[in-house]
């Protein structure tokens, strides 16, 4: 056998037994890394939007004082500003559907750099979110403490009698978990796809 023989046999290979579906709807959902990333970003967006709407009603649920409500909503909408910016960027990425008509390098490069950028944006957004949520938490705690005498239905009453050391350890663990969430989760969720595409791009570059 040589390559000419192989080429001929390749050409002659029968495809009569290959079945094409009679309609597209019978096929399962697409699962390329691009589709997977897009659908998980969409899922994250929906979950986060739901949670953010829920958080909006925290002052109502816990009967915040007017001054506390002002601080809460100021910080809440500051966070929202950054989050909306990220969602706008994500939406642009989501809508600019990849184009498999491009040549392989162009297609892969586009997705690789867009995904990389979105991962970094997601991290930046999570850190801003984390920082402002921390400030919000401390401010609320401080206000509740100072206004506690005037409000006997305060949520912080729950912590009465708890050793402050445990509260601080709890807060430190929470902050660390939030840091891991912001820094590591995007890499865990999307890193393997990024790596896979980078490998193919490197193989194209090798000479």
């Amino acid at each position: 056998m040589n390559f000419d023989d192989l080429q001929q046999q390749w050409k002659d290979e029968p495809s009569d037994n290959v079945q094409i579906p009679s309609e597209i709807d019978v096929l399962k959902k697409a699962i390329t890394p691009i589709d997977f990333v897009r659908s998980s970003m969409k899922r994250d967006f929906l979950i986060q939007t739901f949670l953010r709407i829920l958080i909006l009603f925290v002052p109502v649920f816990f009967d915040f004082t007017d001054s506390l409500k002002t601080i809460f909503y100021t910080l809440y909408f500051t966070i929202l500003f950054f989050v909306i910016y990220y969602y706008y960027k994500f939406y642009t990425f989501y809508k600019n559907s990849y184009n498999l008509n491009y040549n392989s390098r162009k297609n892969l490069s586009w997705f690789y750099y867009e995904l990389k950028l979105n991962i970094e944006l997601l991290k930046a957004c999570s850190f801003i979110d984390l920082l402002l949520t921390g400030i919000l938490g401390v401010t609320i705690g401080w206000f509740i403490r100072t206004e506690k005498q005037h409000n006997t239905h305060n949520i912080l009453n729950l912590l009465d009698g708890v050793n402050p050391l445990f509260i601080n350890i709890g807060l430190a663990i929470f902050a660390f978990l939030m840091f891991l969430h912001a820094e590591k989760l995007p890499n865990i969720s999307y890193g393997k796809y990024l790596k896979n595409i980078k490998t193919v791009l490197d193989e194209l570059d090798e000479l």
């Binding site: 390329t32 008509n101 392989s104 892969l108 193919v200």
Partner: peptide, 17 residues
Amino acid sequence: SWMYRVALNTALIYFKK
């Protein structure tokens, strides 16, 4: 020709289940 391109681009990024 168009099929070659789309089919190969799909295969290049495809992850086994």
